[in-house]
Protein backbone atom coordinates (compact mmCIF):
# COMPACT_ATOMS: atom_id res chain seq x y z
CA UNK A 1 0.00 0.00 0.00
CA UNK A 2 1.14 3.49 -0.54
CA UNK A 3 -0.17 6.92 0.08
CA UNK A 4 1.32 8.30 -3.10
CA UNK A 5 -0.60 10.85 -5.05
CA UNK A 6 -0.47 11.68 -8.73
CA UNK A 7 -0.92 14.81 -10.75
CA UNK A 8 -2.23 14.12 -14.20
CA UNK A 9 -3.26 15.97 -17.31
CA UNK A 10 -6.43 14.61 -18.86
CA UNK A 11 -7.52 15.11 -22.44
CA UNK A 12 -11.20 14.32 -22.15
CA UNK A 13 -13.72 14.16 -24.95
CA UNK A 14 -16.63 16.50 -24.32
CA UNK A 15 -19.76 16.43 -26.39
CA UNK A 16 -23.05 18.04 -25.44
CA UNK A 17 -25.29 15.59 -27.21
CA UNK A 18 -25.55 13.09 -30.05
CA UNK A 19 -25.69 15.73 -32.74
CA UNK A 20 -23.32 18.25 -31.23
CA UNK A 21 -19.72 18.62 -32.32
CA UNK A 22 -17.30 17.19 -29.78
CA UNK A 23 -13.84 18.34 -28.73
CA UNK A 24 -11.06 17.44 -26.37
CA UNK A 25 -10.94 19.42 -23.18
CA UNK A 26 -7.89 19.53 -20.97
CA UNK A 27 -8.36 19.03 -17.26
CA UNK A 28 -5.82 18.79 -14.52
CA UNK A 29 -6.34 16.02 -11.99
CA UNK A 30 -4.47 16.98 -8.84
CA UNK A 31 -3.52 14.89 -5.82
CA UNK A 32 -5.13 11.68 -6.97
CA UNK A 33 -4.32 8.88 -4.51
CA UNK A 34 -2.87 5.93 -6.37
CA UNK A 35 -5.29 3.63 -4.53
CA UNK A 36 -8.15 5.27 -6.40
CA UNK A 37 -9.73 3.56 -9.35
CA UNK A 38 -9.80 5.26 -12.72
CA UNK A 39 -13.45 6.13 -12.27
CA UNK A 40 -12.82 7.53 -8.80
CA UNK A 41 -10.22 9.76 -10.39
CA UNK A 42 -12.96 11.03 -12.70
CA UNK A 43 -15.22 11.49 -9.65
CA UNK A 44 -12.58 13.76 -8.15
CA UNK A 45 -12.27 15.74 -11.36
CA UNK A 46 -16.05 16.11 -11.46
CA UNK A 47 -16.23 17.32 -7.86
CA UNK A 48 -13.68 19.95 -8.81
CA UNK A 49 -15.67 20.96 -11.87
CA UNK A 50 -18.85 21.32 -9.84
CA UNK A 51 -16.99 23.51 -7.34
CA UNK A 52 -15.87 25.69 -10.24
CA UNK A 53 -19.42 25.87 -11.53
CA UNK A 54 -18.65 23.83 -14.62
CA UNK A 55 -20.80 21.01 -15.93
CA UNK A 56 -19.34 17.70 -14.78
CA UNK A 57 -18.18 15.05 -17.24
CA UNK A 58 -20.67 12.29 -17.98
CA UNK A 59 -19.04 8.89 -17.99
CA UNK A 60 -20.56 5.42 -17.99
CA UNK A 61 -20.26 3.42 -14.80
CA UNK A 62 -22.34 1.42 -12.37
CA UNK A 63 -21.25 -1.64 -10.43
CA UNK A 64 -17.57 -0.66 -10.25
CA UNK A 65 -16.56 -4.23 -9.67
CA UNK A 66 -16.02 -5.28 -13.24
CA UNK A 67 -19.16 -7.31 -13.87
CA UNK A 68 -22.04 -5.11 -15.05
CA UNK A 69 -20.34 -3.96 -18.25
CA UNK A 70 -21.60 -0.40 -17.99
CA UNK A 71 -18.24 1.30 -17.88
CA UNK A 72 -15.78 1.58 -20.70
CA UNK A 73 -13.82 4.35 -22.32
CA UNK A 74 -10.77 4.51 -24.55
CA UNK A 75 -7.78 5.31 -22.39
CA UNK A 76 -4.70 6.34 -24.35
CA UNK A 77 -6.03 4.56 -27.40
CA UNK A 78 -6.88 1.31 -25.68
CA UNK A 79 -10.33 0.11 -24.76
CA UNK A 80 -10.52 -0.13 -20.93
CA UNK A 81 -6.92 1.06 -20.68
CA UNK A 82 -3.65 -0.75 -20.64
CA UNK A 83 -4.37 -3.50 -18.12
CA UNK A 84 -5.17 -6.80 -19.75
CA UNK A 85 -8.45 -8.46 -18.80
CA UNK A 86 -9.55 -5.47 -16.76
CA UNK A 87 -12.61 -3.26 -17.11
CA UNK A 88 -12.18 0.49 -16.70
CA UNK A 89 -13.65 0.40 -13.20
CA UNK A 90 -11.03 -2.07 -12.07
CA UNK A 91 -8.13 -0.09 -13.50
CA UNK A 92 -6.33 1.62 -10.66
CA UNK A 93 -4.31 4.78 -10.69
CA UNK A 94 -1.20 3.06 -9.41
CA UNK A 95 -0.78 1.85 -12.97
CA UNK A 96 -0.10 5.44 -14.01
CA UNK A 97 2.80 7.69 -13.20
CA UNK A 98 2.89 11.19 -11.85
CA UNK A 99 2.80 13.72 -14.65
CA UNK A 100 1.17 11.42 -17.21
CA UNK A 101 -1.10 12.80 -19.86
CA UNK A 102 -4.13 10.58 -20.41
CA UNK A 103 -6.40 10.79 -23.43
CA UNK A 104 -9.95 9.64 -22.67
CA UNK A 105 -12.42 9.08 -25.48
CA UNK A 106 -15.80 7.40 -25.73
CA UNK A 107 -16.28 4.12 -27.59
CA UNK A 108 -16.59 4.94 -31.24
CA UNK A 109 -18.64 3.03 -33.80
CA UNK A 110 -21.40 4.05 -36.12
CA UNK A 111 -23.73 1.80 -34.14
CA UNK A 112 -22.68 3.40 -30.82
CA UNK A 113 -23.64 7.07 -31.14
CA UNK A 114 -22.29 9.31 -28.41
CA UNK A 115 -25.03 10.25 -25.98
CA UNK A 116 -23.02 12.78 -24.04
CA UNK A 117 -19.32 13.19 -23.29
CA UNK A 118 -18.00 9.68 -22.71
CA UNK A 119 -21.36 7.90 -22.70
CA UNK A 120 -22.48 6.02 -25.80
CA UNK A 121 -25.63 4.16 -26.75
CA UNK A 122 -24.98 0.43 -26.94
CA UNK A 123 -28.52 -0.74 -27.56
CA UNK A 124 -27.55 -2.62 -30.76
CA UNK A 125 -26.06 -5.26 -28.46
CA UNK A 126 -29.54 -5.80 -27.03
CA UNK A 127 -30.95 -5.93 -30.55
CA UNK A 128 -28.60 -8.81 -31.34
CA UNK A 129 -29.79 -10.70 -28.26
CA UNK A 130 -33.40 -9.94 -29.05
CA UNK A 131 -32.97 -11.52 -32.49
CA UNK A 132 -32.39 -14.93 -30.99
CA UNK A 133 -30.02 -14.87 -28.04
CA UNK A 134 -32.27 -16.97 -25.84
CA UNK A 135 -33.59 -20.46 -25.36
CA UNK A 136 -37.32 -20.73 -25.67
CA UNK A 137 -38.27 -22.51 -22.48
CA UNK A 138 -41.34 -20.86 -21.02
CA UNK A 139 -41.50 -20.76 -17.25
CA UNK A 140 -42.89 -23.95 -15.82
CA UNK A 141 -42.05 -26.19 -18.76
CA UNK A 142 -38.61 -27.19 -17.57
CA UNK A 143 -37.74 -30.79 -16.81
CA UNK A 144 -35.60 -31.66 -13.82
CA UNK A 145 -32.29 -29.88 -14.08
CA UNK A 146 -30.34 -33.13 -13.84
CA UNK A 147 -32.34 -34.84 -16.56
CA UNK A 148 -29.94 -33.52 -19.19
CA UNK A 149 -26.39 -34.24 -18.11
CA UNK A 150 -23.87 -31.88 -19.67
CA UNK A 151 -20.23 -32.95 -19.76
CA UNK A 152 -18.18 -30.74 -17.49
CA UNK A 153 -15.98 -29.65 -20.37
CA UNK A 154 -19.01 -28.51 -22.37
CA UNK A 155 -20.44 -26.60 -19.42
CA UNK A 156 -17.05 -24.98 -18.83
CA UNK A 157 -16.75 -24.00 -22.46
CA UNK A 158 -20.24 -22.49 -22.42
CA UNK A 159 -19.30 -20.63 -19.26
CA UNK A 160 -16.13 -19.26 -20.90
CA UNK A 161 -18.33 -17.71 -23.55
CA UNK A 162 -21.06 -16.65 -21.14
CA UNK A 163 -18.55 -14.64 -19.10
CA UNK A 164 -19.05 -11.78 -21.58
CA UNK A 165 -20.23 -8.67 -19.74
CA UNK A 166 -21.58 -6.89 -22.82
CA UNK A 167 -19.46 -3.77 -22.38
CA UNK A 168 -18.85 -3.29 -26.08
CA UNK A 169 -15.06 -3.00 -25.79
CA UNK A 170 -14.72 -5.54 -28.61
CA UNK A 171 -16.62 -3.24 -30.95
CA UNK A 172 -14.74 -0.21 -29.68
CA UNK A 173 -11.33 -1.79 -30.18
CA UNK A 174 -12.09 -3.21 -33.61
CA UNK A 175 -10.84 -1.17 -36.55
CA UNK A 176 -14.00 -2.23 -38.37
CA UNK A 177 -16.34 -1.75 -35.40
CA UNK A 178 -17.37 -5.37 -35.75
CA UNK A 179 -19.61 -7.06 -33.20
CA UNK A 180 -18.28 -10.52 -33.86
CA UNK A 181 -16.72 -11.30 -30.50
CA UNK A 182 -19.85 -10.31 -28.59
CA UNK A 183 -22.23 -12.13 -30.91
CA UNK A 184 -20.12 -15.24 -31.16
CA UNK A 185 -19.69 -15.45 -27.40
CA UNK A 186 -23.44 -15.22 -26.91
CA UNK A 187 -23.98 -17.80 -29.62
CA UNK A 188 -21.48 -20.29 -28.30
CA UNK A 189 -22.88 -19.97 -24.79
CA UNK A 190 -26.24 -21.21 -26.04
CA UNK A 191 -25.20 -23.26 -29.07
CA UNK A 192 -22.81 -25.44 -27.12
CA UNK A 193 -25.40 -26.55 -24.57
CA UNK A 194 -27.87 -29.39 -25.18
CA UNK A 195 -30.71 -27.04 -24.25
CA UNK A 196 -29.72 -24.71 -27.07
CA UNK A 197 -29.73 -27.29 -29.86
CA UNK A 198 -33.30 -27.07 -31.20
CA UNK A 199 -32.92 -23.38 -32.00
CA UNK A 200 -29.20 -23.50 -32.75
CA UNK A 201 -29.19 -22.66 -36.43
CA UNK A 202 -32.23 -20.44 -36.41
CA UNK A 203 -30.57 -18.46 -33.63
CA UNK A 204 -27.26 -18.30 -35.43
CA UNK A 205 -28.76 -17.04 -38.65
CA UNK A 206 -30.93 -14.44 -36.94
CA UNK A 207 -28.25 -13.09 -34.61
CA UNK A 208 -25.55 -12.87 -37.28
CA UNK A 209 -27.83 -11.09 -39.69
CA UNK A 210 -29.02 -8.68 -37.04
CA UNK A 211 -25.43 -8.04 -36.00
CA UNK A 212 -24.58 -7.13 -39.57
CA UNK A 213 -27.25 -4.47 -39.64
CA UNK A 214 -25.27 -2.56 -37.05
CA UNK A 215 -21.63 -3.54 -37.13
CA UNK A 216 -18.74 -4.07 -39.50
CA UNK A 217 -17.18 -7.31 -40.59
CA UNK A 218 -14.40 -9.31 -39.03
CA UNK A 219 -10.90 -9.14 -40.48
CA UNK A 220 -9.42 -11.36 -37.78
CA UNK A 221 -7.14 -8.76 -36.27
CA UNK A 222 -7.77 -10.03 -32.77
CA UNK A 223 -8.00 -6.58 -31.20
CA UNK A 224 -11.38 -7.46 -29.68
CA UNK A 225 -10.04 -10.32 -27.62
CA UNK A 226 -7.11 -8.21 -26.41
CA UNK A 227 -9.45 -5.47 -25.27
CA UNK A 228 -11.99 -7.81 -23.68
CA UNK A 229 -12.09 -7.45 -19.89
CA UNK A 230 -13.11 -11.10 -19.71
CA UNK A 231 -10.52 -12.21 -22.27
CA UNK A 232 -13.08 -13.96 -24.44
CA UNK A 233 -11.36 -16.11 -27.04
CA UNK A 234 -11.32 -15.54 -30.80
CA UNK A 235 -12.17 -19.22 -31.15
CA UNK A 236 -15.83 -18.40 -30.67
CA UNK A 237 -15.75 -16.29 -33.83
CA UNK A 238 -14.59 -19.32 -35.79
CA UNK A 239 -17.37 -21.41 -34.25
CA UNK A 240 -19.88 -18.75 -35.22
CA UNK A 241 -18.63 -18.62 -38.80
CA UNK A 242 -18.90 -22.38 -39.04
CA UNK A 243 -22.40 -22.45 -37.61
CA UNK A 244 -23.56 -19.59 -39.77
CA UNK A 245 -22.57 -21.23 -43.05
CA UNK A 246 -24.13 -24.44 -41.82
CA UNK A 247 -27.29 -22.62 -40.78
CA UNK A 248 -28.03 -21.59 -44.34
CA UNK A 249 -28.16 -25.23 -45.31
CA UNK A 250 -29.76 -26.63 -42.17
CA UNK A 251 -32.48 -24.02 -41.92
CA UNK A 252 -33.44 -24.64 -45.51
CA UNK A 253 -33.79 -28.32 -44.77
CA UNK A 254 -35.74 -27.72 -41.58
CA UNK A 255 -38.16 -25.56 -43.50
CA UNK A 256 -38.51 -28.16 -46.22
CA UNK A 257 -36.60 -26.50 -49.09
CA UNK A 258 -37.87 -23.02 -49.00
Amino acid sequence: MSANTLNLTLQIWRQEGPNAAGRFETHEARNIPDDASFLEMLDVVNEGLIQEGKVPIEFPHDCREGICGTCGVMINGRAHGQERGTATCQLHMRKFSDGDTIAIEPWRAAAFPVVKDLVVDRSPLDAVIEAGGFITAPTGTAADANETPIPKEAADSAMDAAACIGCGACVAACPNSAGQLFTSAKLWHLNSLPQGQPERFKRTEAMVETMEQFFGSCTNHGECSEACPKEISLDFIAYMNRDYIKSKRVNRKLAGQR
Binding site: I135, G140, A145, K152, A162, Q195
Partner: peptide
Protein backbone atom coordinates in the same frame (compact mmCIF):
# COMPACT_ATOMS: atom_id res chain seq x y z
CA UNK B 1 -38.31 -25.23 -9.82
CA UNK B 2 -35.97 -22.27 -10.20
CA UNK B 3 -32.97 -24.53 -10.72
CA UNK B 4 -34.87 -26.49 -13.38
CA UNK B 5 -36.01 -23.34 -15.11
CA UNK B 6 -32.58 -21.73 -15.14
CA UNK B 7 -30.89 -24.88 -16.41
CA UNK B 8 -33.44 -24.97 -19.23
CA UNK B 9 -32.62 -21.34 -20.00
CA UNK B 10 -29.04 -22.34 -20.63
CA UNK B 11 -27.41 -21.10 -17.45
CA UNK B 12 -24.00 -22.80 -17.42
CA UNK B 13 -24.09 -24.03 -13.85
CA UNK B 14 -20.98 -25.80 -12.59
CA UNK B 15 -21.07 -29.51 -13.37
CA UNK B 16 -19.48 -32.67 -12.07
CA UNK B 17 -17.52 -34.85 -14.47
CA UNK B 18 -20.57 -37.06 -14.81
CA UNK B 19 -22.43 -34.13 -16.31
CA UNK B 20 -24.72 -33.56 -13.34
Amino acid sequence: DIIDQMAAQGVPFAREYGGL
